[in-house]
Simulated assay, not measured.
Amino acid sequence: MPATEPRRPAVPSVPVVNAANALTALRIVLVPVFVVLVGCSALVHPGWRIAATVTFAIASTTDLVDGWIARRYGLVTSFGKVADPIADKALTGAALVLLSWYDRLPWWVTALILARELGVTLIRFWVIRYGVIAASRGGKVKTALQVLAIVWYLWPVPGALAGIGAWIMGAAVVVTVVTGLDYVIRAVRLRRSA
């Protein structure tokens, strides 16, 4: 009688339609809503600015929640792995471009942050055959500082406090550059060790 291989337990497939992916999709849908609200405000009308800020804050919060839900309840999908970073970059990128468009943020800051994000994405593809580079604490700090700075710029902050936004964004830029360099170093090490 021929030997048979032991049966492996079936791995349940994760449905694409789940809570984590729904939040990611919501974030994607909120990007054009946010853009329209900023456009209506022209960053001068307080009511529209508040609406834009609240929309941005809700969308940014879904980024925290969808990842937690996906990991906690085993709802990680290929769609989520692709759509989540796209949604993040679309939201942050739109906010930065709009802030520069309305002369609230220097264009070089927007260009630097977007170049870093594009560079990290390309590096991920460069090393994907060798492994995955996990997000660092610095990366999470970078995201938190960027979100806080963007919220500060969007909200109709009184004149005396408005300047704080530039300091927050300055810190975000420093952390963005440092974590970008760290990502390059870790990617090169991963390639060399493979």
Rank of each mutant, 00 (worst) to 15 (best):
185 I>V: 15
164 I>L: 13
92 T>Y: 06
123 I>K: 10
167 W>Y: 14
73 Y>H: 15
137 R>P: 07
116 R>I: 03
159 G>W: 08
75 L>S: 11
98 L>F: 14
82 V>K: 00
92 T>V: 15
119 G>R: 05
142 K>M: 14
188 V>Q: 13
152 W>V: 13
181 L>N: 00
112 L>S: 14
135 A>Q: 02
67 G>S: 10
152 W>M: 13
69 I>P: 05
69 I>Y: 06
75 L>P: 06
62 T>M: 14
141 V>H: 00
159 G>Y: 09
160 A>I: 10
110 T>G: 09
132 V>L: 10
124 R>N: 06
71 R>G: 08
104 R>W: 10
134 A>M: 01
181 L>M: 04
78 S>A: 11
77 T>D: 03
169 M>Y: 06
92 T>A: 12
65 V>P: 08
139 G>S: 12
61 T>P: 04
58 I>R: 06
70 A>Q: 09
73 Y>Q: 12
81 K>G: 12
68 W>C: 04
145 L>H: 03
160 A>H: 05
106 P>K: 09
164 I>D: 01
122 L>K: 00
105 L>R: 11
183 Y>T: 14
81 K>N: 08
101 W>S: 10
168 I>F: 11
149 A>N: 01
71 R>P: 04
126 W>G: 00
73 Y>L: 14
165 G>V: 02
118 L>Q: 02
74 G>P: 02
117 E>W: 02
125 F>W: 11
94 A>L: 05
150 I>W: 12
94 A>I: 03
184 V>D: 12
188 V>W: 13
88 D>L: 08
129 R>K: 13
170 G>C: 13
69 I>S: 08
90 A>F: 10
69 I>T: 07
187 A>G: 15
159 G>I: 09
57 A>K: 11
118 L>Y: 09
157 V>C: 11
117 E>C: 06
184 V>N: 12
87 A>H: 02
96 L>R: 07
79 F>I: 07
167 W>R: 11
125 F>S: 13
70 A>L: 10
124 R>F: 01
59 A>S: 13
151 V>I: 14
128 I>D: 13
114 L>N: 02
79 F>R: 04
145 L>Y: 04
110 T>M: 13
81 K>W: 02
169 M>D: 05
125 F>L: 15
143 T>S: 15
134 A>P: 00
87 A>P: 01
174 V>H: 10
102 Y>M: 08
59 A>H: 07
130 Y>W: 12
129 R>A: 13
93 G>A: 03
179 T>C: 02
87 A>M: 03
187 A>Y: 09
183 Y>C: 14
121 T>F: 03
123 I>W: 10
116 R>N: 00
115 A>C: 15
59 A>Y: 07
120 V>R: 00
155 W>V: 15
124 R>C: 04
85 P>Q: 06
158 P>Y: 09
163 G>S: 12
78 S>D: 13
179 T>L: 02
